[in-house]
Design a protein around this nucleic acid. Structure first.
Lengths: 193, 193
DNA sequence: GAGCGGATCGAGGGGATGCTTC
DNA sequence: ACGAAGCATCCCCTCGATCCGC
């Protein structure tokens, strides 16, 4: 194992390309760069050292076997694999919200809280014309005529709100699914809307 | 700055992609991943924008007569002879498109990107009445009653779209075949529609 | 842009099927 | 007359946002 240093945004970008839970940085980069493990010896120009910024030695404090990129993100709370995953959802509170729109927002907020890096990646979804999610209210406003964007509480995100309940379920289901939740968990969430 | 751990061979591979002395790991990865410093959180890899990366990978000229036709064109990225040819296709992204029409368009866009000179030659195909390809929407419109032309993304071309899936496969197969793809590669593309 | 929620209905796109043509 | 190839009608489904009810 080698350690390299990269800039923050690039780091987030790479993390955002995660396709499976627990994927290591190597896995992701191999996929993106289309380098498979077998071609490693492929004669390349000699290892120009990744300059001074590359740290050549790995401090053994890093647990290598599960080096999912997420573990370096300080905002990670849990992953969908966590058997207690749904316990992070306060269904009681959510259920008390007065409308499905409110419940929709709370559920999204919970997903964000549980793992905001995965949420960021999962909320890339749009309809035929409208943007569904954005960090910017105005861009949602711009993409549709009366989409009624609302802020997702305790979150930098906004969602479209002018949809019927079925569509709210679809949106939630999409996000949850992209985040890797189990089918049964997704069902539970959608029912809670 | 963030730190990530990657496997040794991948590290060497990345180091081997150094273009300038003193380039940082971030610089190299940005170039390889085509992520510029201003990426937004939602930036997704562009399936068809493979030019800059692929240029470096053009294999030694094949001694076929076709390749000599193209070898002087600066826009040649690779040729169907390239054993890695299909790796230029982002099947994952293509597969995620919501309809066969969308996938059809993406696949054509990929063929164009991979070698636009060959594409230009290969897309000369028409049905009994309708034009199939054109750089001009109106000429497609003019040649049929409801052909539903759509722009091929990131491309100067338009294609007819009002066909059943079988015909979309025929069209794709014709273009791929004219471009000189192997039978097995063509099959792979047609299945992806 | 300020009342909010969201069901309902209309617009539009996808593409299989059936008709036409050769 | 029969089949094959190709065209485009037309149904279905998705998605938007109007508009009504509270």
């Amino acid at each position: 194992m080698k350690t390299i240093e990269i800039e923050e945004d690039l780091y987030l970008y790479i993390a955002g390309q995660t396709k499976h839970i627990g994927e290591s940085a190597s896995d992701i980069l191999r996929r993106l760069l289309e380098v498979d493990a077998s071609i490693q010896e492929s004669a390349e120009p000699e290892p120009v050292d990744l300059n001074s910024q590359a740290v050549d030695d790995v401090p053994p404090e890093q647990p290598t076997q599960e080096s999912s990129v997420y573990e370096n993100l300080e905002d990670v709370v849990t992953t969908p694999q966590d058997p207690d995953f749904l316990s992070y959802f306060n269904f009681e509170l959510i259920g008390n919200a007065g409308s499905s729109t409110k419940r929709f927002l709370s559920l999204l907020a919970s997903l964000y809280t549980v793992n905001n890096a995965m949420f960021a990646k999962a909320c890339v979804i749009k309809g035929s014309k409208r943007e569904y999610f954005s960090q910017d209210k105005d861009s949602l406003l711009a993409s549709g005529k009366t989409s009624k964007p609302q802020a997702i509480p305790d979150t930098p995100y906004w969602v479209i709100t002018n949809t019927n309940t079925a569509r709210k379920r679809h949106i939630l289901q999409h996000v949850a699914s992209e985040m890797g939740l189990q089918e049964s968990q997704i069902e539970r969430l959608c029912e809670a809307i």
